[in-house]
Computed example of a mutant assay.
Amino acid sequence: MESNRSGLELGSVVVGVDGSEPARRAALWASDEAARRRRPLHIVYGSDIDGRVLDLSAEDAERVRAKARELLDGTAAAVQDRHPALSVSTEFSRSGPAMSLRRAAGTRGTVVVGNRGPGGFSTLTLNSVGLKAAAEARTPVIVVRGSCDEANHGVVLAAVRDEYDLDCVRHAASAAELRKATLRLLHVRNLLEAVSSVARTLNKSDAVAGAHEQSLEALAQQIRDEYPSLTVQTDALEGVSVAGVLVEASRHADLLVMGGLRSPSSIGRTPGRATHGLVHHAYCPVELIPRHSDEHRNEAS
Results as ranks from 00 to 15, higher is better:
Arg189Trp: 09
Lys180Ala: 15
Glu248Lys: 14
Val240Pro: 12
Asn152Asp: 10
Val240Phe: 14
Ala181Ile: 09
Glu248Gln: 14
Ser197Pro: 00
Leu166Tyr: 08
Arg161Ile: 08
Ala249His: 06
Ala236Lys: 08
Ser241Arg: 10
Val160Asp: 01
Arg200Tyr: 13
Lys204Met: 07
Gly239Asp: 06
Glu193Asn: 07
His212Arg: 14
Ala199Phe: 08
Leu178Trp: 03
Lys180Gln: 15
Ala249Thr: 02
Ala220Ser: 10
Ser196Asp: 12
Ser174Val: 01
Leu157Arg: 02
Leu219Glu: 03
Val160Glu: 02
Ser215Asn: 12
Ser215Cys: 07
Ala181Gln: 08
Leu230Thr: 09
Leu237Trp: 15
Gly154Val: 01
Leu202Met: 06
Leu191Gln: 01
Gln221Arg: 13
Val247His: 01
Arg200Asn: 12
His171Met: 02
Val141Cys: 09
Ala209Trp: 04
Lys180Asp: 13
Leu237Gln: 15
Glu150Met: 01
Asp167Lys: 11
Cys168Met: 10
Val242Thr: 15
Leu185Cys: 02
Leu202Ser: 10
Val242Cys: 14
Ala173Cys: 00
Val144His: 11
Glu238Arg: 12
Val240Cys: 12
Leu219Met: 13
Cys168Leu: 07
His212Glu: 14
Asp162Gln: 06
Asn190Trp: 11
Ala194Met: 13
Ile223Gly: 02
Ala199Cys: 07
Glu163Asn: 07
Gln214Asn: 05
Val232Pro: 01
Ala173Lys: 00
Ala211His: 13
Glu177Cys: 02
Val208Ile: 14
Ser229Arg: 06
Ala158His: 03
Tyr227Asn: 02
Asp165Arg: 00
His171Tyr: 11
Gly244Asn: 06
Asp165Pro: 07
Ser147Gln: 04
Ile223Cys: 05
Asp162Ser: 09
Thr234Val: 15
Thr182His: 11
Leu185Asp: 00
Ala236Cys: 15
Val143Cys: 06
Ala181Trp: 08
Ala159Tyr: 03
Arg224Ser: 10
Val198Thr: 12
Gly239Asn: 07
Asp167Glu: 14
Ala194Lys: 11
Val143Thr: 11
Ser229Asn: 08
Ala199Val: 04
Val247Asn: 00
Glu163Lys: 09
Cys168Phe: 00
Ala172Ile: 00
